[in-house]
Design a protein around this nucleic acid. Structure first.
Lengths: 220, 220
DNA sequence: GATATATCGGTATAATAATATCGATATATC
DNA sequence: GATATATCGATATTATTATACCGATATATC
């Protein structure tokens, strides 16, 4: 719960996950020079419910929208970015320099989301003391120590499923507060620590199920 | 809705997304030689509600569990894999051979999920007629044509946000039925076509919000 | 073999999230 | 300046999902 002005605004998990889509959409509008946008308009373009959009916007926007006009695009953009915390930078470490780890290290876009990966870790000695796109790679044994020393708050886990829990424990021991987990397993973390799963296997499950249904009805 | 035996079993979206975690968990049990597992046991390990687990299992498992014993691990595993469709192979194309696209092409694990990427596309001519880990890269202009000819059903979109909708349209034109979208935008697709978003920006939003709350209460 | 009990499966309730409804109002239009 | 209306914001309803409850039963234990 967050207090803005004097009305308490609750944001559901789902709503929070929709925010990045609003943000991208608003950026597109700004690029086109659009000054105002209404909830029904956004709803139409993003294929969402009008009321849902209005509630979502109410949660982030300090200033209300105006009848017949809607919301100011630049204002909404600023509110959204500050709401999502993309303005202040969070430093992170990445553990597991495999294919996926490498891709994330190479991705420049994270700076737009307030994320900065400042070190990587792996167990492969041939990688030690090398760099990938400017990020140094350290031995996994030093994970806890370096997290603590550098006051790292975010750990990105891109190791195979079998090692993910061990890595997670090391991150927690190092004082990390939030973990972005790409392994398809449940991580046990203490309360107060967030384990956010990037559940690619779940996406694949959705794809697979959809396809099966389509192909079944096709052959009926 | 799915009919097994003669009782209709509905699987909620959320339940479907939990399945991969059950699957990995069951694999771990099998590796340890565990023969039976009960819903309360799974719930405890995966930090889920016992009833939820039982309902989820009921949705996939043709055979019920037994009091005092639970479910047979191998049986459950088999049911889960066939439920998720990981046994039959779906062919896919990938569009956008950037950092992320490369990572996905390099990832061997997709075969475990019944996914096989058989071609990649990009607009960079220097990539044409090259291969990445055995997957040929074609010009993006040929996307629709090749999808249709190869009867591809799944498209993986790893292009920047600005191009995602155009790529999506080409895939749909080529007869693709399901799209796995990594761009942080909403894709407009016809009904019957699934646009499954891998919403990494949403994960970052969750991380960012959690951190902000933690750090705020710390300084109070 | 009798008894106690862990677990199951079904039904009921509660919590959460999405959508519908409606009066109020600022602004575009005449 | 008067009027019509698009949009807002608040409240009510519905849908979905999660959790609690409870009788039935197979099996472990004595």
């Amino acid at each position: 719960m967050q207090i803005q002005g004097n009305k308490p605004v609750v944001v559901s998990k789902q709503a929070l996950q929709r925010m990045p889509y609003y943000l991208e959409y608003l950026k597109k509008l700004r690029a086109r020079g659009v000054e105002f946008v209404s909830a029904p308009m956004i709803a139409q373009d993003l294929k969402l419910n009008e009321v849902q959009v209005r509630k979502d916007l109410a949660a982030v926007s300090s200033v209300g929208g105006r009848p017949k006009t809607g919301f100011s695009v630049p204002e909404l953009l600023q509110n959204m970015e500050s709401f999502l915390g993309y303005n202040d930078v969070n430093e992170a470490v990445l553990v597991g320099v495999g294919a996926l780890g490498r891709a994330l290290l190479s991705y420049k876009g994270f700076s737009n989301y307030g994320l900065k990966i400042i070190a990587a870790f792996d167990t492969d000695p041939s990688l030690y003391n090398t760099e990938l796109r400017g990020t140094a790679i350290f031995p996994a044994e030093r994970l806890t120590e370096l997290c603590a020393r550098l006051k790292i708050r975010i750990g990105i886990v891109t190791v195979p499923a079998g090692q993910a829990q061990a890595v997670c424990d090391m991150l927690v021991a190092g004082g990390v507060l939030a973990i972005w987990n790409f392994a398809p397993i449940h991580l046990n973390v203490p309360p107060n620590i967030l384990a956010q799963n990037e559940n690619m296997a779940a996406s694949l499950a959705m794809l697979s199920k959809h396809l099966r249904q389509k192909l079944e009805t096709e052959t009926d």
